[in-house]
Nucleic acid binder design. Sequence first.
RNA 1: GGUCUCGUGGCCGAGUGGCUAGGCAGUGGUCUGCAAAACCAUCUACAUCAGUUCGAAUCUGAUCGAGACCUCCA
Length: 490
Amino acid sequence: MRDLYIYNSLSSKKEKFVPNQQGHVGMYVCGPTVYSNVHVGNVRTFMSFDMVYRYLLHLGYKVRYVRNITDAGHLENDADDGEDRIAKKAHLEKIEPMEVVQRYTVDFHNTLNRFNFLTPSIEPTATGHIIEQIEIIKQILEKGFAYEVNGSVYFDVLKYNQENNYGELSGRKIEDLIHNTRTLDGQSDKKNPQDFALWKRADPQHIMRWPSPWGIGFPGWHLECTAMSTKYLGKNFDIHGGGMDLKFPHHECEIAQAEICNGNSPVNTWMHANMLTLNGQKMAKSTGNFILPNDFFTGESKHLSKSFSAGCVRFFILQAHYRSVLDFSNDALLASEKGYNKLMESIRILETLNSSLKTSDFNIEAWKESCYNAMNDDFNSPILIAELFSVVKFINQVKDGTSTVSKEDLDLITSTLNIFVFDVLGLQNMNQGANQYKEKLKDTVELLIKMRAEARINKDFELSDKIRIQLDEIGIQLKDSKDGTIFKID
RNA sequence: GGUCUCGUGGCCGAGUGGCUAGGCAGUGGUCUGCAAAACCAUCUACAUCAGUUCGAAUCUGAUCGAGACCUCCA
């Protein structure tokens, strides 16, 4: 099998992926701050890494996939009086911060489950790692790269930059940062605006508070990822992922903290998933320009003309490369839905195909290789999907009798499609989950098909059309072919 | 204002110095009692201008336009 190449944000190049430990991969992905429902943009990022995780697993790697839950420390802004997002929500709703965390963590998991996500190996929380975070702050203070002011501790970015390169990931120069930093009110505690908080003093009214050597307070946002990635994946690990918008300053700060604390660059391959836009603008909670996953299922949104299945949405998202901006629109989703249904339908047809002695001009081995080549080239799911459609066409040709397939190749198509459609892309198999009702429904529809066929033989087209049209209205579509009639349920 | 990315046919989206992904929509055909589905064929492209090259949508420069980050954000 060929090598896997991944685009590394740190070098801005596609690089051959070689894990630290042969056969094992450590991957950390920045998870959500659980202060509100995840929107579709959030889902896209996590889906990108779900696909990465799935493909690495398929390649046979033992992957430790860590995706955190931020349940403390994420401030509204960087000013001294910046409010913790969770605490703010708790104030507003007059409930405990941990009730906020619980509510939206559950929502997060429910949403991802509907989109058929695999569960990460570890899903640690910031509040569960306060001790580890305090230990890191101590080390950074000891090494002289942080300073304490009024019960808060800040990372000294300018000092760090003397020996290291702050901005190496996002391609920024410290001089530009200094020059361009907007002055915010209430930043008096910091020596420089570029410095970032490792620990913040908690005001008496601040409800999220922990004791520390510097007084009662709470950890800074960037710190949790360093603490948890180091704890579970080590001082140097293979892949760190997150949304493009976290590249600066969040990931830059993570690198700085780890460099000082551990003495080396923490991550070999940085991966950044691009934004999902709506009306050409980034989907963001703060601007109100977003749609929630549930809107797809109900269809009740000004942006949607109808409801869409989770599988269809998943297909829509994976039809774009994870590093490209994807613009969401109802029309694009409608087009994807048709393509998705066509793909799924062909998988169903595949089960009914008869093999013959040999396969006519379709090279299954070469096709399979093309699928792997697509994924090995920086997880190019759109190319993979294009390849899948080439076999969809072939399947339909065999069904129509214009092509033939050998038993061996039929098995190879089936196994390869199962790998890429279900294991790698994570598209749900609508054939699965069969139950007694489904079986009975099938028998019922087949009875109607038989009745319609009889009506057609008797040229009673009024009755035959009535059966077909009324079934269609229910959402059951009949498809005639030379070999008889099959049906499809939307 | 600074840094970066992008601008592909009716829509969405790959790709790349010569061999014109794919899906959806359109058109013609096969099939059908009529349809639908499927299959076959087919039409729309590479923002603009200039340069490099035997050859550029792909490289370079300029222009215009869009977006991301610089402040919380997946």
